[in-house]
């Protein structure tokens, strides 16, 4: 992915440039989703691999978009932990649902009141990330999003960038 040739830049991360990686993943997952959609136009209907491709694409694009927004100077810091966990939960959940057999209506096994595959969807993908991403956002807010004094600094730097004197 082409990135910018600008200066001044914030310090480059010691590890891999997660911002650049995440942008690449957005493009790759958008292509995957596009291919899954395109497969529906094939004669004979949607092939069996298309839902797998779609679920990988949609899980990755959402997590990668979060990473692009969260990255500062190319790094997402310790946010790699919740982001990886969310990816495992969402992609693993969809994968589990695609792989598990349907419930037996004669002798239904229920997890917290729902058939297993429905429970994975509702509690796993729908509910579990609530305990991860909003909490991770709050947890890392000061050092990775907007610390004390950042607002003043941005205001002053923006004024200087426009050639005006900060108040």
């Amino acid at each position: 992915m082409s990135d910018e040739a600008q200066s001044p830049q914030p310090a480059k991360p010691a590890g891999p440039d997660m911002h650049r990686w995440a942008l690449g993943l957005i493009v790759a997952s958008a292509i995957a989703i596009g291919l899954a959609y395109a497969s529906a136009f094939l004669p004979g209907g949607t092939p069996g691999w298309a839902p797998w491709l779609f679920m990988i694409g949609t899980s990755v694009i959402m997590v990668a978009t979060m990473a692009v927004g969260a990255a500062r100077g190319g790094s997402i810091g310790r946010l790699w932990i919740p982001f990886s966990m969310v990816l495992v939960i969402v992609m693993g959940g969809f994968g589990l649902v695609l792989a598990l057999p349907p419930a037996d209506p004669g002798d239904p096994e229920l997890w917290l009141g729902l058939p297993p595959r429905a429970a994975v969807i509702m509690y796993g993908i729908g509910f579990l990330p609530f305990f991860l991403v909003p909490v991770a956002y709050a947890w890392t807010f000061d050092d990775l999003t907007l610390g004390e004094g950042d607002l003043e600094r941005v205001r002053d730097e923006a004024l200087r960038a426009r050639g005006e004197m900060p108040k």
């Binding site: 959402m62 978009t65 979060m66 692009v68 927004g69 969260a70 969310v86 969402v90 969807i121 993908i125 729908g126 509910f127 579990l128 990330p129 609530f130 991403v133 909003p134 991770a136 956002y137 999003t145 907007l146 607002l151 941005v154 205001r155 923006a158 004024l159």
Partner: peptide
């Protein structure tokens, strides 16, 4: 179903940038 993800995603991707843009 994506509701558990979308607000944090919006916060990371847009909230700070838009609020800072309103500032400058």
């Amino acid at each position: 179903l994506p509701a558990a993800l979308t607000n944090a995603m919006g916060a990371w991707v847009l909230a700070k940038r838009l609020r800072l843009m309103a500032e400058v």
